[in-house]
């Protein structure tokens, strides 16, 4: 197992190296440059040229890339052009928000998706099945930012149940320990702050969960349907096993393998979804930060964000591979 994990982690190196080259070339092919982000709209062509020179933006690409790679190997993602601070620090400050949001979204997606998918399969062709299939189709088809506005319009503007933006009410002066606001509230026993942070997570969490929820429902349903038709399930039924035992030991367990794979892929994808969700909800995580960086042509932040997504994606998939062995004893990682 250990060798497998190390091998997979080593695979990260060529992946990230290739990605960094692609990214570097792509970002530098984009029209415009970071000069206006630095100098503002009043910049003169002369001062723009001076900035380009001082930043080495006029050097050959290979030289610029070499410089970038050298920094990267030292764990230095450079400084944000807009915020004038190390990119890594800025990401670390915002990462807890995005983790809270993605975990919330996955709790909602898995917690509701698997039971719904199972029920839809068990009660095939009933109203519940039609409803869950229809609703998941609608959720997948609806652009996430549009859904965000709709959810906000209903639950925040009309019903007034939830706040429309942010991670915590601006009037709450909570003690910060880890940067995870819910956790901080619990650790410091500032229950109002913890509850308020949870309160702020519900709508963006629901919005971000929409696509994975829909996919998990459909995957679970399809997978359970397939397993329900298997001989061993019929055998188990013929043996007179209880419904609960058949569901847990034979159906769900065998149906979960493809679902877990999809969950892994979806978790990585959530970081991309967070860009839109966090923007719509002014939720201060790395997604909103990345969106802002794109607006400002903040190259170091854009690069950092994509590299972080890549690392998370690979790590999540590694966890998925490991979890196979827990679900299916026949699968052994080597």
């Amino acid at each position: 197992m250990m060798r497998f994990i190390v091998r997979r982690l080593l695979q990260l190196i060529p992946t990230l190296l290739g990605l960094s080259i692609l990214l570097f070339l792509w970002l530098h092919r984009l029209p415009g440059g970071p000069e206006t982000a630095i100098l503002g709209e009043r910049a003169t062509p002369a001062s723009r040229a001076a900035i380009r020179k001082s930043m080495g933006l006029d050097d050959p690409l290979i030289v610029q890339y070499g410089r970038f790679l050298k920094q990267l190997l030292r764990g230095d993602l450079g400084n944000s052009l807009n915020e004038k601070r190390p990119v890594l620090d800025l990401f670390l400050e915002r990462f807890p928000g995005t983790i809270e949001l993605t975990v919330t979204a996955m709790i909602i997606a898995i917690g509701l998706g698997i039971p719904l998918g199972y029920l839809a399969a068990k009660r095939r062709a009933t109203w519940l099945d039609h409803l869950s299939v229809g609703a998941s189709l609608a959720a997948v088809c609806t652009p996430i930012f549009f859904l965000g506005y709709l959810i906000k319009a209903l639950f925040a503007v009309n019903l007034g149940w939830f706040p429309t933006f942010g991670r915590q009410d601006t009037t709450i002066d909570a003690t910060r320990v880890t940067g995870f606001y819910v956790l901080d509230g619990i650790m410091t026993q500032e229950w109002d702050a913890a509850l308020d942070a949870m309160h702020h997570l519900v709508l963006p969490g629901l919005t971000l969960a929409s696509v994975p929820l829909a996919i998990i429902v459909r995957m679970t349903r399809a997978s359970v349907l397939e397993v329900l038709g298997e001989d061993y399930v019929r055998t188990a039924e013929a043996k007179g096993l209880t419904e609960r035992r058949i569901r847990g030991r034979h159906v769900l367990r065998n149906a979960m393998l493809p679902v877990v794979t999809v969950i892994g892929l979806l978790t990585g994808g959530l970081l991309s979804g967070a860009v839109l969700t966090e923007t719509v909800f002014a939720f201060t995580g790395i997604g909103q930060f990345a969106a802002q960086a794109i607006d400002n042509r903040d190259y170091p932040v854009m690069m950092g964000f994509i590299l972080i997504i890549a690392v998370v994606y690979v790590l999540v998939n590694l966890i998925v591979d490991i979890s196979y062995s827990l679900i299916d004893p026949r699968v052994r990682v080597r």
Binding site: I107, I114, G160, W161, M198, H199, L201
Partner: peptide
């Protein structure tokens, strides 16, 4: 799975309670 489902519902309920 049960824990996830309960957590999902609890999260929503907690939000509603404070809302």
């Amino acid at each position: 799975l049960a824990v996830s489902a309960v957590a999902a519902l609890a999260l929503t309920a907690a939000g509603c309670a404070a809302s």
